[in-house]
Design a protein around this nucleic acid. Structure first.
Length: 557
RNA sequence: UGGGGUGUCGCCAAGUGGUUAAGGCACCGGACUUUGACUCCGGCAUCGCAGGUUCGAAUCCUGCCACCCCAGCCA
């Protein structure tokens, strides 16, 4: 897989330069999710970047939960996130929580107060907003801005002691209310959250530090060398640096921003993903149509394919949108190499092979992979009655159609050729059964004097096994749902899931949960692990095969 | 109308004054084929616009234009 090709990007170039110049001997990165939701493919980009750099430069990467807002967070998410990171194939050097640093953070805040660089402000949230000014007008200084160090120290201590109600006071940095950068207009450092039970620290604290104060210090305490985050934090970098410049932190990591991932035909924001789940448009966070790691996993994506995808799309500061085709190409490339082949008929049409003895069951050997003998083979069962896919028969067609037509001949994959003699119809004129005869001389060799161009898949009617197959497609009908005005629910692709009752070859009956196959001529499928717990045989379509016939057909083939 | 960013093929993305402007995905031809798959061969851009500097510019300068982000006691 193209995964071996070492990625290069502007961040890696910075790191290589820092290593070459001796600025750093060892690189230390971190992946810092807030445990307030499930990870998605956009997080995978960050994970592959951070852990990939640590791997490639002999450094380390921490997993750190940015848990400074107890209102939104939960242990359920920390466990899910750990599982997802591991599943993607990474092992963190250190597992930390920003909440591990609450006491140290408090002391650093005290240090700022003592330096006259932070103050307790009694403005209400509404007043703070008014005082902040606008994008084009400077803000005004808070009337509490010049309290004495002693008073600030006292008030901050009492904030911690729980003496003041939520929203009544904050600790603010004293920077510049006229700064063109809004983040520098005396940003909030601490707020009061009295009733909150934090998932790690319980009720030990009733004041909580803000991201802008917590993040640089957490990075510094862990000895992070390069703090990689997304573009929307570019404006926060001056504040990140201000904090570290004014506090006695052990080091000063460098924040570097890159563009977050946008993928066509899906959404990535936590709010919208939550909406999909809560409004019942999908069955849950692990619905195979979701761009979550859990969803992709259940769909049948491999960790390697996701890593490969992340390396293919690169890392830059350009705010772009990647086509689904790239993700699909990654999983196809992986599964083409690794998935055993099987036959499954998704839209069964019965075929009676009239010259095949009734009751006979012939065992045929079929390779698991056309190009990899090491993958072995499995047994097929041929009988007088079989199923083929409806789409593989037409009463008549032009020469571009290579499948079965009335009077025509086609090869049954891994078996004999058959010639169609009759199409039996019901009262509505629909074809309900085909009567064909086979050529016993064509097993493993071509018939004399004629060329059979088509090959179709099939399954024995009596030996085949019934299975539910879920055909997934893109969740939305528009490339960029987030940019539309209409409610999310109206932008969904009505065909994002089609459930069919299929007949699959016997070997598929004991597929392991999560096991992946190529259903020949159809696509890649994976046995649904959740349904497997109930003993149900359900397959999810990971992705279709590339289909050049569909293009020919569309053009009038 | 303030500040911070970004503009190279349909999509992603190399490129860091002298290269025929990498590569991947997609697309279009063709070969092969017991998967209309895979594989293979071939095709596919003058770099947002306009000026300027230079023997030479996607790369430097100037001026425009377009798009993204910022006014949470969210991250």
């Amino acid at each position: 897989m193209s995964e071996q090709n070492k990625p290069t990007n502007f961040i890696r170039q910075i790191i290589e330069a820092d290593l070459a110049s001796g600025k750093h001997e060892k690189i230390h990165t971190r992946f810092p999710p807030e445990p307030n939701g499930y990870l998605h493919i956009g997080h995978a980009k960050s994970i592959v970047l951070n852990f990939g750099i640590a791997e490639d430069y002999g450094g380390e990467c921490n997993l750190r939960f940015d848990d400074t807002n107890p209102h939104k967070e939960d242990v359920e998410y920390v466990e899910a996130i750990k599982e997802d990171v591991r599943w993607l194939g990474y092992q963190w050097s250190g597992l930390y929580y920003a909440s591990d640093y609450f006491e140290q953070l408090y002391q650093f805040a005290v240090e700022l107060i003592e330096k006259g660089l932070a103050y307790v402000c009694d403005l209400t949230p509404e007043q703070v907003r008014e005082y902040r000014g606008t994008l084009t007008e400077p803000g005004r200084e808070s009337p509490y801005r010049n309290r004495s160090v002693e008073e600030n120290l006292d008030l901050f201590r009492r904030m911690r002691a729980g003496e003041f109600p939520d929203g009544s006071r904050t600790l603010r940095a004293k920077i510049d209310m006229a700064s063109p950068n809004m983040n520098l207009r005396d940003p909030t450092l601490y707020r009061i959250r009295r009733g909150a039970i934090h998932h790690q620290t319980g009720d030990e604290w009733c004041i909580y530090p803000m991201y802008d104060f917590t993040h640089p210090i957490s990075d510094a305490l862990e000895g992070i060398t390069h703090s990689l985050c997304t573009l929307e934090f570019e404006d926060h970098r001056p504040l990140y640096d201000w904090v570290l410049d004014h506090v006695s932190a052990p080091c000063h990591p460098r924040q570097i921003e890159f563009a977050r991932l946008n993928l066509e035909y899906t959404v990535m924001s936590k709010r919208k993903l939550t909406q999909l789940v809560e409004e019942g448009h999908v069955e849950g966070w692990d619905d195979p149509r979701m761009p979550t790691i859990a969803g992709l996993r259940r769909r049948g994506y491999t960790p390697a394919s996701i890593r490969d995808f992340c390396n293919r799309i690169g890392v830059t500061k350009v705010d772009g949108t990647v086509e689904m085709g790239v993700l699909e190409a990654s999983i196809r490339e992986d599964l083409d190499r690794t998935a055993p082949r099987r036959m499954a008929v998704l839209d069964p049409l019965k075929v009676v092979i009239t010259n095949y003895p009734e009751g006979k069951v012939e065992t045929l050997e079929a390779p698991n992979h056309p190009k990899d003998d090491a993958m072995g083979s499995r047994q097929l069962k041929l009988t007088r009655e079989i199923y083929i896919d409806r789409a593989d028969f037409r009463e008549s067609a032009n020469k571009k159609y290579k499948r079965l037509v009335l009077g025509g001949e086609v090869r049954l994959r891994n078996a004999y050729t058959i010639i169609c003699d009759e199409a039996v119809k019901n009262d509505q004129g629909e074809v309900v059964e085909l009567r064909c005869h086979y050529d016993p001389e064509t097993l493993g060799r071509n018939p004399e004097g004629r060329k059979v161009r088509g090959v179709i898949h099939w399954v024995s009617a009596s030996e085949g096994v019934e299975a539910e197959v879920r055909l997934y497609d893109r969740l939305f009908r528009v490339p960029n749902p987030a940019a539309e005005d209409a409610p999310l629910g109206e932008l969904l692709n009505p065909d994002s899931l089609k459930v069919v009752q299929a007949v699959v070859e016997p070997a598929l009956a004991d597929a392991a949960p999560g096991e992946r196959f190529q259903f020949e001529r159809e696509g890649y499928f994976c046995r649904d692990a959740v349904e497997a717990e109930q003993g149900r045989l359900v397959f999810n379509r990971v992705v279709t095969l590339r289909d050049s016939w569909a293009k020919v057909e569309k053009k009038g083939g």
